[in-house]
């Protein structure tokens, strides 16, 4: 499979994503500079973590107007798989590809640590190889991960099973103590209504190989690969 990893000025997890997809999982992943206006020949797009445009104004607010974002919008609207990790999630929110917005962490601190999340929806192309309710340990590293949306949007998201990950205890209990940043309803990751775009604050690319002591994050990339391969087979059979 061919992955495109978008590189904005200030992205700093692009190489980690490319390393996991190519060196660990044996697929092709290329960096795509934010000035590009085409995304030809790519099966999935990843918006990596980092501090695009120095987080000026708001996280993701300026990156969303990068030239490549027009192509990302089009790719998503055509059903292409788009994953935003951390700053990539923030950019997808600012771009309106996902609902809601990020506020500063409740503690005002930059938090960098392993957290646990439950898989609230295992029927997505990003979590298809997870068990429903499975607890994954994946690190977070952010200052603005306090997810917010209004009550109306939240109930719509719940009705459409758009909440994919929630912060939880190691045992899988979604409690306020397990909420690292004040996120509404412990939300750590969401998808769009169509199901082809997902954003998550935890960094699966930092926990995708046993050598690093934790490979729970690998499940996200393997799920994406599985969904892409199934879609290709389906296309061949059709």
């Amino acid at each position: 499979m061919n992955f495109g990893v978008i590189v904005f000025p200030g992205s700093n997890c692009d190489h980690d994503c490319i390393h996991v997809l190519s060196d660990v999982l044996g697929h092709k992943a290329i960096p795509v500079w934010h000035k590009e206006s085409k995304l030809d020949g790519l099966d999935a797009i990843i918006l990596p973590g980092g501090f695009s445009y120095g987080d000026y104004l708001r996280t993701g607010a300026i990156a969303r107007f990068s030239p490549v974002m027009g192509a990302v919008q089009q790719f998503a609207h055509e059903g292409g798989m788009v994953l935003g990790i951390c700053n990539g999630f923030q950019i997808l929110l600012e771009a309106g590809l996902l609902p809601g917005a990020m506020l500063r962490n409740r503690s005002l601190s930059f938090i960098c640590k392993d957290v646990h999340v439950t898989v609230e929806n295992a029927a997505t192309p990003f979590t298809g190889l997870c068990r429903p309710g499975q607890v994954l340990k994946i690190p977070i590293a952010h200052a603005d991960g306090n997810y917010y949306t209004d009550d109306v949007a939240l109930s719509q998201m719940k009705a459409a099973a758009q909440i994919v990950f929630c912060y939880c205890t190691a045992e899988g209990k979604v409690t306020s103590e397990a909420n690292p940043n004040g996120s509404l309803d412990n939300i750590a990751g969401i998808r769009n209504a169509a199901g082809n775009v997902m954003g998550m604050m935890p960094h699966p690319e930092r926990s995708a190989e046993a050598l690093l002591g934790n490979d729970d994050g690998r499940l996200i990339f393997l799920s994406m690969l599985d969904a892409l391969q199934k879609a290709k087979l389906k296309a061949v059979l059709a």
Partner: peptide, 8 residues
Amino acid sequence: KLLANTII
């Protein structure tokens, strides 16, 4: 369009 995010 840019200066404020009217969700928040």
